[in-house]
Simulated scan of single mutants.
Amino acid sequence: MPTTRARRLLALVSLTGLLTGLFTAAPATAAPASRQATDLTQLLNTALAESSAKVGNPGVQAVILRNGQLVWSGNSGKAVDDPPTPVTDNTLFGYASFGKLLLATYTLNQVEAGKLALDTPISAYIGHDVPGSGVITIRMLLTHTAGYPDVYASPELAPLMPGGDQYQPDVPYTWEMIARGLRAPVDPGKEYRYSNTGFLILTHVLSVRAGGDQKLTDAINAFNTRAGSVVPEDGRVLTMERKQQDYSRFAHGYETFRDLGTIDMFTYFGGTGIPTDMFGLPWGDGLFAGTALGGAQFIDALYARKRLLQPATLQAMITPSPQSAADNETYGMATERIEVGDRVWQGHSGGYGGFNTLGGTDMTRGVTLMVVANHLGTSAAATIWKRLARTYASATS
């Protein structure tokens, strides 16, 4: 069975198409605010139910925020198939590559603080143990232009990942295990090539610069509180720490394989807790887990309320790199545009371990939409997200 992390199954592409059912027949007298809110809730509830059914009724959380305020939330399906466990507001999901956006924001904050420089070779921070460190920069890592080959395809790491003959989901991974599979970058800085490897290296740089994994964890947790995604022990909505106490809150990720059918990625390989490849250090390419609300609060704070980065830094983050633009993509620094009808959203997708995620903010209107789902391979999050985005757009100005 191929290594699942080696594939980006939910590439965030521009979602095109005309809006259907545009809201054009406004009443002569505007309805009371409570009536409008009720109508919008009903429309979104219907959109969630119908789009979830279209992709096989996975476990789903979805939320919409506007400038920090909750507009709507909905849950659907099962967090765990056996024993049947419904998704609730408290259920945790793996964010997968959506977490790249969160990690990039923290990295750019460190650039603003003068602790890192975008265009200084990373050897200034970690020496020469990583191939190409004398040439590769933070900017290259953030924009997927460093040119590192896929580390998950290496003979050193592939056997240790799901489907590999040495995979042990209860055994923690280390940076040293990943480093054995690194290869020299190819044409660094020349082309945009989406790379999980680059974000693994970025996390190593951040860890060394912070003084170790625990200090990095503490620093990122402190930064995330600025987004409103508070991480109290009894109700975390955004986390990079795998804790056994969270296991009962976690949805299980499900994935369908030609030779195996649909399997539970938490239990099929003999795991007894949260699989150690699911999120957390050293997995900088998929560092975070949480609820839909936790992810939405973060990107709302970043893109709508603009509380996390300085204006010039934020503009640089969302501007497509020259290499991305040359490839007709809109990828900047761990974020890209999503177009639905006449609205443009800024965000990121993710897919790994049976989970898939899509979150984005309409920066013009201050609206953030986040969807997390626990079945990978059906494009569940993207399908549901697009339907909710169109429904919201058709009912609002």
Rank of each mutant, 00 (worst) to 15 (best):
M1W: 13
M1L: 14
T4F: 10
R5N: 04
A6I: 05
S14H: 08
P32F: 11
R35I: 13
T38Y: 13
A47D: 03
L48I: 02
L48S: 03
A49H: 04
A49E: 07
S51R: 06
N57C: 02
P58T: 08
G59I: 04
V60M: 02
Q61H: 11
I64P: 05
R66W: 05
Q69V: 15
L70K: 12
V71L: 12
S73A: 14
P83H: 13
T85L: 00
V87Y: 14
V87S: 12
T91S: 07
T91N: 07
L92H: 14
A96Y: 12
A96Q: 15
L101H: 15
L102I: 15
A104P: 06
T105H: 00
T107E: 03
P121F: 14
I122K: 09
S123T: 09
A124G: 01
I126P: 01
T137C: 14
R139C: 09
M140H: 04
L142N: 08
G147I: 07
P149T: 01
V151G: 03
Y152P: 02
P159Y: 00
L160K: 11
M161I: 04
D165V: 08
D170V: 09
E176C: 05
R183N: 02
Y194T: 03
G198E: 10
G198T: 12
L200G: 02
T203E: 13
L206G: 05
L206Y: 09
R209V: 14
G211K: 11
D213A: 14
K215H: 13
L216E: 01
A219M: 01
I220G: 01
N221G: 09
A222S: 12
R226I: 03
G228F: 03
E233C: 06
D234H: 15
Q245N: 10
Y247G: 01
F250H: 14
F250L: 11
A251H: 05
G253R: 03
G253T: 07
Y254K: 05
E255C: 00
E255W: 04
E255K: 05
F257W: 14
F257H: 13
I263G: 08
D264K: 07
M265W: 06
F269H: 08
F269K: 00
G271F: 05
I274M: 13
T276R: 14
D277T: 11
P282T: 11
P282Q: 11
G284E: 05
G286P: 03
T291H: 11
A292Y: 00
R305C: 06
R305E: 10
P311V: 07
A312G: 09
Q315N: 14
Q315I: 05
S321M: 10
A325Y: 05
N328G: 06
N328C: 01
E329V: 06
Y331W: 15
T335M: 15
E336T: 12
W345I: 00
G350F: 12
G353Q: 09
G354S: 06
F355M: 10
T357E: 13
M363W: 02
L369H: 10
V371T: 10
A381C: 12
I384E: 04
W385T: 14
R387P: 00
T391G: 02
